[in-house]
């Protein structure tokens, strides 16, 4: 269980966190949502006890300000991009296992758990981004901590690596681990989170369920559809007739959809016998060249 009361963090002339209070129950998966500079990373660093703060913060009953080291022992941490020393995967895990006072056998267990056994003799700098994140997760799991803190863990991963990573974390959450993660990707928050804390300019401005987030914050979700060049004009005409906001972009068209309505444009195209070659979902604002049609 994590309890934050009046958590405040000030740097020289800025207030990074301003009187933030929240409670995270054991076994929850809570997302910290917010733009860059909202205070997500600062909150996670306070949880880890690597920086001072005002207010009260406890992790599983440990006062973080009094005993940051004990708090860190109860937390497994996965940063956005873990920076490892120049060692092999196995050496890296043994190094952190010794710091966490974990028996050597545990190294092999976590290697299996994150499916890196086949890569254990590789140097860390030879790993892909996805494998490095899995290694960071393995390090985080070494001491089998009750809490996992993830700082935008999939931000630098490709789509498949994102899905694999999220699936692994979901499994850990189902097994009882408390997950606190920062993200600005709606699909990740929905897939992983059971609750969302929305931060803006260091303040906690909203607590909601993941599926309420898009509506409450007025976020846009875009469906990208690929159709053949011959049927593109028909597609644009149909979308226009049905009142969609859309944006042509090369061989694809971006269509603004609601959270529960992503299937509707696809059904309309199917009914009009326009074959869809591929599609993808994108959250947030688009930065594209082209004409928008409202």
């Amino acid at each position: 269980m994590i309890i934050a009361r009046h958590l405040t963090k000030r740097y020289d002339h800025t207030t990074a966190l301003d009187d933030v209070s929240f409670v995270i129950e054991a076994g929850e998966a809570v997302a910290l949502w917010g733009a860059n500079g909202a205070g997500k990373t600062t909150t996670l660093r306070c949880l880890l006890g690597v920086q001072g703060f005002e207010g009260e913060l406890t992790v599983n009953g440990i006062q973080v300000s009094q005993n940051g080291k004990a708090a860190r022992a109860a937390i497994g941490y996965v940063p956005q991009e873990a920076a490892f020393y120049d060692m092999t995967v196995l050496e890296t895990l043994h190094f952190y296992a010794r710091l966490k006072k974990v028996i050597a056998q545990r190294v092999h267990d976590v290697l299996d758990q994150v499916q890196l056994t086949a890569h254990s003799s590789k140097r860390v700098n030879m790993l892909s981004g996805g494998m490095k994140q899995r290694l960071a997760l393995a390090v985080a799991l070494l001491a089998d901590p009750p809490v996992l803190v993830l700082d935008e863990p999939t931000a630098n991963l490709d789509v498949k690596a994102q899905r694999d990573f999220i699936h692994t974390v979901q499994t850990l959450n189902r097994a009882g681990k408390t997950i606190v993660f920062s993200s600005h990707r709606l699909d990740e928050v929905i897939a992983l989170g059971s609750r969302v804390l929305v931060l803006a300019e260091g303040k906690l401005i909203l607590e909601c369920l993941p599926h309420e987030l898009a509506e409450k914050l007025g976020l846009h979700r875009w469906l990208r559809i690929w159709v053949s060049e011959q049927r593109k004009d028909d597609t644009l005409k149909l979308l226009d007739e049905q009142g969609y906001t859309f944006m042509p972009n090369g061989r694809s068209v971006y269509v603004q959809v609601s959270l529960g309505g992503k299937i509707a444009p696809l059904r309309s195209l199917e009914l009009a016998s326009i074959p869809v070659e591929d599609f993808d979902l994108i959250d947030g604002e688009l930065v594209l060249q082209g004409d928008s049609h409202d």
Binding site: V50, K69, A70, A73, K100
Partner: peptide, 14 residues
């Protein structure tokens, strides 16, 4: 500079 120090400090060490 590489971030390895920040990662190390996030472990149970002082």
């Amino acid at each position: 500079e590489t971030g390895a120090l920040a990662y190390l400090l996030a472990q149970p060490v002082n």
